[in-house]
Amino acid sequence: MADPVLSVKNLAVEFDTYGGTVQAVRGVDFDVERGKTLAIVGESGCGKSVTVQSIMGLTPMPPGRITSGSAMMGDIDIIGRKTINGEDIRGSQIGMIFQDPMTSLNPTMNIGSQIAETLIVHRGYSSKQAFARAIELLDMSKIPEAAKRAKQYPFEFSGGMLQRAMIAMAIACEPPILIADEPTTALDVTIQAQILDLLMELQRNNGMSIILITHDLGVVARMAEHVLVMYAGQIVEHGPVDEIFYRSGHPYTMGLRAAMPTNDPNAEQRLTPIDGSPPDLFHPPVGCGYFARCPHAMRICAEQPPQAHQLSAAHAAKCWLHHEANTQQVAQINLRDHAGEEPS
């Protein structure tokens, strides 16, 4: 991939807990392209948030620990660094918005000041300038009566409005990368669409890259150019959005698709949940992490971890089904009705 803004290699993160050490992220690689949106999907606890928070230096350490890996912006590894060429990474190089806007803003500080704070710290604005700019940013984020709203406190805002304010705050210093960690999960559906539209519009206008973390495939389809599917702390499949949706290479991705409602009136399929729960990351399995839940599991899957198999130029999946020694027809498995597969 040409000219990525951010290139993450072999990132691994552990957490020490009372129960032992959790290997939350187990060797993750990906690139973020300039001006594009990269989606990371996966269920709760698969390591999506930990991945980006480690890059941002937001994982509490201890108990967290980055055991290996790098995240290159240009030729500088930003893991464990605070600044690039004197510029702070957080806030001015990478902006971030979070899942729950209701709790992600300081309840005792007005919205305008919280946005202005960023500008004062990173851009050296006077507090007056910064507040004026904060109002402009709120306006850009489509908050009506921005001047009046800027003086209000978070509890006076609705969830959607708060997320707009969060976005205004994250883009205040025009960072080249915006990380959106489940930005619409806590919002209702109509508001979700508005927030996603706002993000896309801002991306068109200032050309930033977005890392979008979500478990909502609908959001992925709408926003992303490239998709990473994470499971049990690893990337099991990645590729362009269309290939992920129409030529899924990993049974987990297929399972996610089968569990997602469609609006195709002809499709008479029931939603199929993925049985079981993710493996215990205190003791990650020797073989494939998805083995215990996979409808296509084979003997080898329990014994050896699968390698990434390139399915097309930008599409790869970590699954033994694609190994040349396998005689089953993967394409057939993929095309068959997923719902009818599971005998149990």
Partner: peptide, 13 residues
């Protein structure tokens, strides 16, 4: 590469 029946996999979860 022999497929395994569901009962042959232990749900260690």
């Amino acid at each position: 590469f022999e497929p395994l029946h569901i009962h042959e996999r232990k749900h260690g979860t």
